[in-house]
């Protein structure tokens, strides 16, 4: 009785990068994956849901807690809404980054990535596509918030439209940098619930133990010490400086460099994490 052995054909994927690879360019792959994620925006309910929390915070702080402007250390002559809005942009942007991590963790859990592995695509393009989608969604979200703040609550900072757009761009870049850290975490943890918990536990203290809602000078000394080393304080101060037209180059460059470093480290870790079986 003879034994028949069938040789398994070698599949050349983008990861192995063999000579037989005839697939599309990395740019095309990224665009396809970004487009796949962007289809979610066809359902406006998701965008509306993501706007509820920042809008509630905007209303609460600008209308109910506007007395904060009478507290110690508040900049003289500034409206609380002008002081608040750049912080809302940064905090909303970083909170959206949590969605990036949870979304990827969901993809990893429901087996979509397993299908992509069988295709001739670079897995890194899945991550970059996801990141681009989050950037687009974040831009829409923050744009709507800005329009609402200007139309409903009279947001009109000293830096004018240019300053506001610069503050928006900085907030988006900070959020994009943070999103890579959470994408990296998701690629290693692969658990939606854990990602949401990690995001909340990290974001809540970062958000409130910072200069986002009250001047650091009005806090107790022990909390001032925390706020002064909180990276979100630097991002908020830079964004606020741009909106007020009083930003220093060092504060803006510091925020940009930190965000870029987070994106690089997060990207490298994510690229390794996603290749794990």
């Amino acid at each position: 009785m003879s034994t028949v052995t069938a040789e398994r054909p070698t599949v050349r994927t983008a990861e192995s990068g063999g000579a037989g690879w005839q697939g599309s360019s990395v740019f095309t792959q990224v665009m396809v994956f970004a487009g796949r994620s962007l289809r979610a925006l066809r359902e406006p309910r998701l965008l509306i849901m993501s706007l509820i929390q920042p809008f509630v915070m905007l209303v609460l702080f600008s209308q109910v807690f506007r007395g904060i402007a009478n507290g110690p250390g508040f900049p003289a002559g500034a409206n609380y809404i002008d002081y608040l809005m750049p912080a809302i942009l940064v905090t909303t942007s970083t909170q959206s980054a949590m969605g990036a991590g949870a979304g990827l963790a969901n993809d990893l859990r429901n087996g979509v990535l397993g299908r992509f592995r069988a295709m001739p695509v670079r897995l890194v393009s899945v991550l970059v596509g996801r990141s681009l989608y989050d950037l687009v969604r974040n831009t829409l979200q923050l744009g709507i918030l800005l329009v609402a703040a200007a139309a409903l609550f009279g947001f009109a900072p000293a830096g004018g439209v240019v300053g506001t757009l610069c503050a928006l761009a900085l907030a988006l870049f900070v959020g994009w940098g943070v999103s890579w850290v959470l994408i990296a975490l998701a690629s290693w943890l692969r658990n939606v619930e854990v990602m949401q918990m990690v995001g909340f536990i990290a974001m809540f203290p970062l958000m409130f133990a910072s200069s986002a809602f009250v001047p650091v000078g009005g806090m107790p000394e022990w909390l001032q010490a925390v706020a002064r080393v909180n990276p979100l304080t630097y991002a908020v101060d830079a964004s606020r400086g741009l909106a007020f037209g009083s930003a220093t180059a060092s504060s803006v460059v510091g925020a940009l460099v930190t965000s870029a470093a987070l994106a690089l480290v997060g990207g490298a870790l994510a690229a390794r994490g996603i290749r794990r079986p």
């Binding site: 507290g71 110690p72 009005g218």
Partner: peptide
């Protein structure tokens, strides 16, 4: 601790900071 110093300043006419808190 975070908002007490600022919001306390507007309650009962006290100063901000620790007394407001």
């Amino acid at each position: 601790y975070v908002f007490g110093g600022a919001l306390g300043a507007g309650i009962g006419g006290v100063g901000g900071g620790a007394s407001g808190r």
